[in-house]
């Protein structure tokens, strides 16, 4: 990972204003910002690693721990709030046994709350792996998670079958 970041940094100009785009690119490729990654960026831009850390912790977008395989973002914008977005969040939290901002121990799921994805007329809304799920309800929460369970079981079965056939 650090090697990849090193290579990536070679292509970006050593300008302070590139700090946020660089961090965005690192997170896009590696899903989060590790302490070492931030130190590399600081070295590249000639600023203190504290400054990189200070900037990164200011913005909601940046994560400092690896997220789950499936990312669930529950919208808690105004329109979603009025129709019970918090209930949807609670349902995800209860079903997965984690709180928002956390990742399940098996690293399958993480939950985040977001402040409006701009689909207010279809509230309440959740974004599951970059797909916007409109008009959520607790039963739909169960359906979505069940879908992942089935998918995982199928994958495992296929894996076993392919191993068996080899």
């Amino acid at each position: 990972m650090l090697k990849d970041i090193d290579e990536m940094l070679l292509t970006s100009e050593k300008k302070r204003e590139n700090l946020i785009p660089i961090l965005q690119r690192i997170q896009q490729r590696h899903a989060y910002l590790s302490p070492d990654a931030m130190k590399l960026v600081a070295l590249h831009l000639g600023i203190s690693s504290s400054e990189v850390y200070g900037v990164a912790t200011f913005y909601n977008q940046f994560r400092f721990h690896p997220p789950g395989k499936h990312q669930i973002k529950v919208c808690l914008g105004t329109a979603c709030h009025v129709v019970g977005g918090d209930i949807i969040l609670e349902n995800f939290e209860r079903k997965l046994g984690i709180k928002d901002g956390e990742t399940t121990p098996d690293r399958e799921f993480s939950i985040e709350r977001v402040a409006c994805v701009g689909c207010c007329a279809l509230a309440p809304v959740a974004v599951v792996d970059d797909v916007v799920q409109a008009c959520m309800a607790p039963s739909k929460v169960e359906g979505i998670l069940l879908g992942f369970d089935i998918e995982r079981e199928r994958d495992e079965r296929e894996k076993q079958e392919s191993e068996a056939s080899q």
Binding site: T78, A79, G118
Partner: peptide
């Protein structure tokens, strides 16, 4: 940078 939770015309 349309941040208001509930407005999406800029988007």
């Amino acid at each position: 940078d349309e941040g208001d939770p509930g407005a999406y015309m800029d988007r």
